[in-house]
Amino acid sequence: MSDQDFFEYRFEARFDDKDCPVVVLEGPLPDRLKGLSLIHQDLNQVDAILGELGACESESVARQKGLLFGALVLYGKCYTEARGRKTRLKPESIFKHAPVKLRVRHDWLMRLRHEFVAHGGEAQEEQLKLLLVLRPEGEEKGIVSLMGHGATAHSLDIKLIEESQEAVRFAAKKVSAQIEALQRNLLKKFDNEGLEWAYQNAVKD
């Protein structure tokens, strides 16, 4: 995709080998359903990326770090304000009846997202000391070099990956249930008069 690409809406459906009328739905309920569907896709992607991260210990640091950052950014996106989606997940709701360890792992993932990926600086996963190296004692005093010494995380321990996937999958399951409930509520609106309205407002070629 280039910076000039755009997406053109076009959808065709057939039933019994005949073209079907299609209605583009707008409004608060469809907006929430669309937002949750995108969030559900992101959570599934996070799960897949974490799986790849756990299987690529022999890969380059650049690849491992790319996977780690990608997973954390996508996961954080599900719980932060995204105006285009018009909805976001609230951890106090998603993990309300979950085992404590899942909420703890969620909070840990979000801390990594906020302090390590999005706003680096004080995260324990990213530390650097600036060192002034002096000439050995007994020699003429002087400076050998000025150097940085430290470390930054580029992967996760396999146990942390598995625990993170457990939290992600739990959230995805809760979102899936919300999507199904919204779909049922939305379809109820097209009984009787609602169905007639839908045919009258179907997209025309």
Rank of each mutant, 00 (worst) to 15 (best):
L156N: 02
L67K: 09
D5G: 03
A167K: 04
R169A: 13
Q127P: 00
I94E: 01
K189G: 15
A181D: 12
K189H: 10
L29W: 08
H106C: 05
L182P: 05
A172W: 06
E196N: 07
V23K: 13
L102I: 06
A82L: 05
Q183I: 06
D191S: 14
L132A: 02
L128Q: 04
F6H: 13
H154N: 11
E166W: 03
V73W: 07
K141Y: 12
G120A: 13
N192S: 12
S37T: 15
M147C: 03
Q41F: 11
V61H: 10
A172L: 04
H114L: 06
D16F: 13
K129N: 04
E26K: 15
L29R: 13
D42Q: 09
G150K: 07
R10W: 09
A198I: 04
V23A: 05
A48D: 10
G142P: 01
D5H: 11
L33M: 09
A13V: 13
S93G: 08
Q41W: 00
L68S: 03
K77D: 13
H149S: 07
L186K: 04
H97G: 02
E8Y: 14
C78P: 03
E122I: 02
K65I: 05
D157E: 14
G35R: 06
T87W: 04
Y199P: 01
P28V: 07
A181Q: 14
N192R: 12
L36W: 12
G138D: 09
S155A: 09
A171G: 05
G84N: 10
H114D: 11
D31S: 13
A13H: 10
W108Q: 06
A202Y: 11
A82R: 08
R88E: 11
S2H: 11
Q45F: 13
G54H: 07
A172R: 12
L160H: 07
T80C: 01
L102Q: 12
L112M: 15
L53Q: 02
E59P: 00
D205K: 15
Q183L: 08
